[in-house]
Amino acid sequence: MAKEIVVAFEHVDKVYTLQDKKKRWFGERKKFYALRDINFSITKGSIVGILGTNGSGKSTLSNILAGISYPTKGNVTIVGEQALIAIKAGMNDQLTGIENIKMKGALLGLSKKHINEIIEDVIAFAELGDFIYQPVKKYSSGMKSRLGFSISIALDPEILIVDEALSVGDKAFAAKCMEKMFELRDSGKTIFFISHSISQVREFCEQGIWIEGGELRMQGTVNEVADAYEKYVEEYKALSKEEQKKQKAKIMAGRTTK
């Protein structure tokens, strides 16, 4: 039996209008395709790694996946609650760790009862000791990230989008996060994992999607895609500076239209 499809992109475009050098009030502005004609579908429980160089459209894609941003054209179907692991969003420096957990829970629309249910887990996972009763302004940046990650991870959505979130805290905490991610993976969640660390993607994901210049280059098993992506990056690195520039300009020109 085929598995249920939970995420489907059909001919998705995301277009931004660009400001010209001279400000123009009338007439067509230049358009920039952050994403162009993206098509893919993902079944329930898949672990998908999204690869691509800087500015290729990964973050735009993750924002659309998370329901924060919307495509200019095309259809996006998402079945179930999705959440982007956003570590720093909605934290208030004046409030204590506990209050921040409650506030972020409220921002995400959890009921008081639900918040009280998860709060113990969050406190235990964050390992902040007595600092949980201190205002967040007294936290080190690592502690802040730990608290943010712990809150996000406790929400238990069906579809998770992890955008470079695991580069937080020290090695020990990163390992703990990774362990938690594996736990979620095994519990049958659909996870999108966006990272520049190819080895992490290979280790964690089963499938891969590679986006380059706003277009879908490749979709397949993680090793296939990661190999092709790695090869591309190596080739790019081997080019001389001028050739690199040329190639970038070419991609850029392909994405902008009059």
């Binding site: 004046q94 409030l95 409650k102 506030m103 409220a106 921002l107 008081k112």
Partner: peptide
């Protein structure tokens, strides 16, 4: 449907203001 969310958000923002 988000009435509780509205109240909680205003509550914690007020609290944060007072802490300042």
């Amino acid at each position: 449907t988000n009435f509780n969310r509205i109240l909680s958000i205003s509550k914690y923002e007020t609290l944060a203001d007072y802490r300042e």
